[in-house]
């Protein structure tokens, strides 16, 4: 029997938000959903996984992510439980992990899916940095997908009673690519790819110091802070903040671009945001063509006013 699997990605032993999108999508297939989770404390996640019948828990005294261990373990599970469809999030970890699994079991993998039709085995994903979309048909017994965050709707998982929990060991056969350490970022940053709101600054911000005001607005909105490549190259922002073709592809409900001209490579990273707001002093700036709402003027006057208005709502 063909089943469907979902890899639940934990970050510091917490469920990532997009896992629910992946599980909701799996439910849509009308196949038996199996959730694969690497944790020693399953109990603390059961509430969030309510409604899932099949849970495969992988345990080990050390579950630190190692691509070789994880990919071997998942490859075996996919085969053992006939998980002919297998879904994950298009995150840094899954982009590292899923291709390894796909190569091992000769599955076909498509990354960054924005639409999946399980009946016709067709998948849609952005190509050419989102300038075009491609619809692919996959002809393989084993299919794998990573989905773009914030695209697929979250639905209730249903109520199938108590879950059946299968416990497995981590497969520690071989360690070729060895992660020896993780360098934490200095501040607790909101992951841009999963953020609901993003406030971004470009070359128009003039100085690194001026990003403070964007951070203050971001804090009010519980938003992430992004940047254009020009701002990163000028040293105003760090490279992990870059949005665009060579940066992050983001998909928030609200994207506020301050002092960003709107180059095609920047759009590539943010054009699917639900609502785009642009603040720019040049009324001819291309960003206004793609923004839903724009204000023409000096950002150093507008952004403080915006902060004041937002404070009225959020405090």
């Amino acid at each position: 029997m063909a089943n469907i699997g979902v890899y639940v990605e934990l970050k510091e032993d917490k469920l990532k938000k997009s896992n629910k999108e992946a599980i909701s999508l799996a439910k849509r297939s009308e196949k038996d959903v199996h959730v694969i989770i690497f944790t020693n404390n399953l109990d603390q996640h059961l509430d969030e996984l309510k409604g899932i019948k099949n849970i495969i828990q992988i345990k080990d005294q050390d579950l630190t992510y190692q691509p070789d261990y994880y990919s071997d373990t998942i490859a075996n599970i996919i085969k053992d439980y006939d998980l002919n469809d297998f879904i994950g999030i298009c995150s840094a970890q899954c982009k590292d992990l899923f291709p390894r699994v796909a190569a091992k079991i000769d599955a076909s993998l498509v990354n960054d899916c924005i639409e999946i039709d399980f009946k016709n085995n067709s998948i849609t994903k952005p190509v050419f940095a989102g300038r075009l979309l491609a619809k692919y048909r996959v002809e393989n017994e084993f299919k794998m997908y990573t989905i773009r965050p914030n695209i697929f709707p979250v639905q209730a998982f249903g109520s199938e009673g108590n879950p059946e929990i299968i416990t497995k060991e981590l497969n520690k056969k071989e360690l070729k690519t060895k992660i020896i350490d993780i360098i934490k970022s200095d501040s607790k940053k909101i992951d841009l790819t999963e953020a609901d709101a993003i406030v971004s600054g470009g070359r128009g911000m003039k100085e690194k110091e001026n990003f403070k005001i964007l951070e203050e607005i971001a804090q009010l909105l519980n938003a992430g802070v992004g940047a254009s490549r020009a701002a990163v190259d000028a040293g105003f922002a760090t490279s992990d903040m870059q949005v665009g073709q060579t940066g992050k592809v983001v998909n928030p409900k609200l994207y506020i671009a301050c002092g960003i001209s709107g180059a095609i490579q920047h759009f590539a990273g943010m054009k699917t945001s639900k609502v785009i707001v642009a603040i720019n002093k040049d009324s001819e700036a291309p960003i206004f063509k793609k923004a839903d709402y724009g204000i023409v003027g000096d950002l150093f006057k507008i952004v403080p006013l915006l902060k004041k208005e937002l404070e009225k709502i959020y405090t």
Partner: peptide, 18 residues
């Protein structure tokens, strides 16, 4: 195993409002 069926332009956003 992965066959392209269709390549197309995404729907464009309507011009925004200043």
């Amino acid at each position: 195993k992965i066959i392209i069926e269709k390549l197309f332009a995404p729907a464009e956003k309507p011009q925004g409002k200043i």
